[in-house]
Design a protein around this nucleic acid. Structure first.
Lengths: 197, 197
DNA sequence: ACCTGAACACCGTTCAAGT
DNA sequence: ACCTGAACACCGTTCAAGT
């Protein structure tokens, strides 16, 4: 699909978009550390200097992908929240959406949340989770003794740890893996309570 | 300290150890992705081909550092557990030790737990945590409804998420950071219960 | 305005040759 | 046995020159 997909003449016209599209592909194949700007240029069919017309450097291109990533992540979180039937279900769905976003966008997720950066993160990225926690507290699924942001932070830490430890193979390596649904249920059983109990 | 610290003659005698020591330094300065074998060779005062007498490749050298890292981590966990006064305190101390190990060994921690690998992880790395959870269940600090390994997995996910989100600056970026002690207390308040309550 | 070609200093890695 | 020197294919990045 990438082989020889080059305009014979001179250049593209829409090189910037072609670079971004190629970068998404290449990133998925090679991961963040294996990602090479020269390889990208070769695939897109331009000289290795051409990308510098559109991006200041390698980091700037990756930064643009992170930016898209935060958008997509926010949309996925909101979509998950919208499908919920009750406050506890909403939290579980947000958690499940977190995990599956990371699964489907491994390299980009890594760049967004795992190492450096945070430069492009949206301040409202976790608004859906904080809202869900507030509701869950009111409905008695979560204790009222802590602020919603504190509890949301705890849940964020838990789901983030679960996600990274699972995707990097750590859970499997230590014999702690389980099917996704069960993993989520068992993990948040320690935090979410039954309001009728 | 690294400048010109070179035997004038030929070579070292103990190049392998010199490489490992230099690598620990360089890794702390440059991080895992910035770590260069050529730069290491220059610092240690040998040709860029010399390290290949002692390590198959760049990865093999980093792998040796990960190996040391798991040892040091295990020792730190056991030391923390030994100081505890009760089962809940023991869990909090293990969590605090996890965080401070990551803080003091940022790059190595990243290579051990954050990205790839897991190849060198000790199967008993989390034995201290599982033991502490078992005790905490018996003492009523943790619910008895789940197995100790399941609960330990949850706690591991939470502390791991807390650690990575904090060290990468994510908590600060989203206005969720707090002093270490309070952060740990607030986070695990949602999981640990008062057995007298 | 947008891209190429050639160049720079750097990588990781290999291998014949030196001591 | 252990290391050097020189080389290879690759990086990211710069810049004069082309259209």
């Amino acid at each position: 699909m990438a082989a020889g997909a080059t305009r014979r003449t001179y250049h593209h016209g829409a090189l910037r978009d072609a670079l971004l599209a190629g970068a998404r592909e290449l990133l998925a194949e090679r991961g963040a550390e294996g990602f090479s700007l020269n390889e990208l240029a070769r695939r897109v069919g331009v000289s290795s200097a051409a990308p510098y017309r559109h991006f200041a450097d390698r980091e700037a291109l990756l930064s643009a992908l992170r930016d898209e990533g935060y958008d997509a992540f926010g949309a996925a979180q909101r979509a998950a929240a919208a499908q919920a039937t009750d406050p506890a279900d909403r939290i579980i769905r947000l958690v499940a959406a977190y995990l599956s976003f990371a699964e489907e966008n491994n390299a980009i997720f890594g760049m967004m949340f795992r190492y450096w950066s945070w430069a492009e993160v949206r301040p409202d990225t976790f608004a859906p989770l904080v809202d869900a926690v507030t509701e869950a507290q009111e409905a008695g699924f979560l204790p009222a003794g802590q602020s919603a942001t504190t509890l949301a932070r705890t849940i964020w830490c838990t789901v983030h740890g679960l996600t990274t430890l699972r995707l990097t193979g750590g859970l499997t390596k230590l014999g702690l893996d389980a099917p996704t649904d069960q993993l989520i249920r068992d993990t948040f059983a320690a935090i979410l309570r039954d309001p009728t109990g």
